[in-house]
Design a protein around this nucleic acid. Structure first.
Lengths: 244, 244
DNA sequence: TATTACGCTATATCACGTACACAGTTATGG
DNA sequence: CCATAACTGTGTACGTGATATAGCGTAATA
């Protein structure tokens, strides 16, 4: 508290800790506007369409003007990754376990709507105010358990990781543009059937032959999500029982 | 089997399903050499140092020669992401649960050694021969359980996802170059303490104050990993019990 | 009011991915 | 045995994008 520990520039900016300067022309922009514009572009065109030029155009300034607000494109990406995070779901009167489920699903869902976040996120630990709010809210729910502080953090981490991994998976399955039936789980299964030599991949080709990847009783995005989520929640619940 | 289902080019190449042509000069390169060179560069300099030019230089040809073997840099990345995967651990006489633990840790560990994989991987479902081998091996271990085929796949997916998420987290914590004590969990805790307003983040600032992020009894990379892994394995074990 | 820090623009550079056209090479069919 | 077609590797050229630098105007401070 005393020393104003030197923060990385990005982090400082993300939390609005910029030194307040009064001199020269009044800024025509502010960080939030820039970040919002960048997010909008990424939402529409993906990260591929995101360039310093396109962002600048969107807010109506010359490209180089942005550099008065962000140190580099990478910094901008980091700020986008926090800025695009919605507020966490309300607790309401949900039991801790139910809230964890809701929370994790919401976490996954906003990633599904913003695929580009997956390509950015990985790079930094959660340091932005919005991400932190999510963390805060799970911890609050976990306060109703008997886990110790370390365990709570780790449980939260595991859930966050799961949301991330599941979103990756779902998105990875999707695209392929259905060009030739390579998209989706069924398409995936078909590709596997084509490629796998049963001698080299006995267990996997067995699974493929069993038809797991096909239609109804097999794979749906959601059943997949719930399955893993329940594994984790069951694990947490068991731990809680042990601790009580 | 009949129709030679049209595979995406990358996938075909990854599995050596290129049409065999005999005409013109004998190729001086082969895909494997190129991919290996690219991996070596990524290992040493990271993805930043990886350019078509640098890869070409490494194998001793002109840049454009590479395009006889790969359709684009992105394709190359996809092949690297499979090519860099080591063989999965041997089962030995491990019980299924123990093997799952070993497998997941090995999975995470090779990601730690190859951070660049995390920035590539996400983009595609596991379609390469090496990744498939990993999948095959967990499934084989899970054959000793009472889970049905769908559950086995999903369990494997959850474990893979966990390895991925944990590796991301660990790597995200690491760098920061210890410039000012922002690296590592302790540094992270210090940053949080600096930034969080207790009113806005009550649970989280409570955790920070409790010292979870500091030193010994708090956070170590490994305890973190084991914690989440056990959640999942416990969950799988419980499910197995229910199914038996 | 003079000064000076600062916002924004325009221009310039440099690194990369990749299209294209050419030159040398080897199997194939007459 | 030769002409040709199907290839492989090379060099050059272009477009895009990130970012350094310098200049011009503006507004707070002395």
């Amino acid at each position: 508290m005393a020393e104003e520990l030197a923060l990385p520039t990005v982090v400082a900016r993300m939390w609005g800790r910029e030194p307040v300067t009064r001199r020269g022309p009044r800024p025509r922009l502010d960080l939030a506007r820039i970040v919002a514009a960048a997010i909008e572009i990424a939402d529409v065109e993906g990260l591929a369409g995101l360039s310093m030029g396109s962002v600048a155009a969107q807010v109506g300034v010359a490209t180089m003007a942005l550099y008065r607000y962000v140190g580099s494109k990478d910094e901008l990406l980091v700020m986008m990754a926090d800025g695009a995070v919605p507020p966490p779901p309300e607790r309401g009167d949900l039991a801790w376990r139910d809230y964890l489920a809701v929370w994790t699903r919401a976490n996954r869902d906003f990633l599904l709507g913003r695929p580009w976040m997956l390509s950015v996120d990985r790079l930094t630990p959660p340091m932005g105010p919005r991400r932190m709010l999510w963390l805060d809210r799970v911890l609050a729910a976990l306060a109703d358990t008997a886990l110790d502080e370390g365990e709570k953090i780790r449980a939260a981490t595991a859930l966050t990781g799961y949301a991330l991994a599941d979103a990756s998976l779902v998105l990875g399955m999707r695209p392929a543009d259905a060009e030739d039936g390579v998209g989706g789980a069924a398409g995936y299964g078909r590709v596997l059937a084509e490629l796998l030599e049963p001698e080299a991949y006995p267990a996997l080709s067995g699974a493929v032959r069993s038809g797991v990847f096909e239609g109804v009783e097999g794979w749906t995005e959601d059943s997949d999500f719930v399955f893993g989520l329940d594994l984790l929640l069951d694990g947490i619940e068991a731990l809680n029982a042990r601790r009580s």
